[in-house]
């Protein structure tokens, strides 16, 4: 049975699109047929960071409006055979999303994919609403700071009251917390909230923390989902989070600050 997973946060720029791409690639690596759908209509970021930008001909909105078939708009990624994206439109605005249109596209995707990842735009407006409305599971991306946590809390409230599952009195949307851009050093310095404080404030099962890392920006500039960028902390942290998402028990890493040893400092490793 296909699962619809929304990646959402409320606040902008916290790492939703990075996480959508990473989870898409991670699930595909684990053998699941996965598609990532860009709900950020008008901005369109996902195709860029997944390296598909030049191959976008038709988009999500074209499909909704019957101007293109779904398989004309789906783009297979270069890196993985079982990973696809459905790009957002750059020219239309978010009002061109309709509930029925979104539903029909998702229903169609359910027939050929195991996981449908919905990359939500920031805010609680139309695009964000439709990205989460049909979700079975939600990954709440939060940065370790008060305003981001507050916005995530707000989104959790909306998921619990305004998603289709809530409105139909079905089993609730399954929630997961992912802390992005975590810097143990800045936690020690008191500039950031500690991961367990965030977890306690939001009271949602914890998928893991992704360390703040330059490799994220570098990977997205190259159009490679960060998780495929072997050996970086961010890639490993995302892979652990994907494993936990799938129910595996994996010890947490990247939560502590390690002072670099003499050689580490010398060679900057």
């Amino acid at each position: 049975m296909a699962r619809i997973v929304v990646v959402t946060s409320g606040k902008g720029g916290v790492g939703k699109t990075t996480t959508s791409a990473a989870f898409g690639a991670g699930l595909a690596l684990k053998g699941y047929r996965t598609v990532v759908v860009d709900f950020d209509i008008g901005l369109r970021n996902l195709d860029l960071i997944m390296g598909c930008e030049r191959r976008v001909v038709y988009d999500f909105i074209n499909v909704i409006h019957g101007e293109a078939k779904l398989n004309q708009a789906l783009i297979k990624t270069k890196q993985l055979d079982n990973l696809y994206i459905l790009p957002a439109s750059q020219t239309r605005d978010k009002d061109s999303l309709t509930e029925e249109g979104v539903m029909l596209v998702l229903e169609e995707l359910k027939k050929s994919f195991d996981y449908i990842i919905c990359d939500s735009p920031a805010g609680i407006e139309r695009g964000a609403h439709f990205a989460m409305y049909f979700a079975d599971e939600a990954i709440i991306v939060t940065n370790p700071e008060v305003s981001s946590v507050r916005d995530s809390d707000r989104i959790l409230g909306i998921l619990a009251s305004k998603s289709m599952r809530a409105e139909r009195n079905m089993d609730p949307v399954q929630e997961h917390l992912l802390i992005a851009r975590y810097s143990p050093k800045r936690v020690i310095d008191g500039d950031m909230l500690k991961f367990d404080d965030v977890q306690e404030l939001l009271d949602v099962p914890f998928l893991g923390a992704i360390p703040e890392s330059d490799s994220v920006l570098l990977a997205s500039n190259r159009g490679v989902p960060v998780i495929l960028d072997n050996k970086t902390d961010a890639a490993e942290a995302y892979m652990d989070a994907v494993s936990r998402f799938l129910g595996e028990e994996v010890p947490h890493r990247f939560l502590q600050h390690h002072r670099k040893g003499f050689f580490g400092r010398l060679f900057g490793s």
Binding site: D171, F195, F206, P251
Partner: peptide, 15 residues
Amino acid sequence: MTTNTDSYKSGQTQG
């Protein structure tokens, strides 16, 4: 380097 957090598997109780 493992840190004990609330076991992920415990999930939420939905009453």
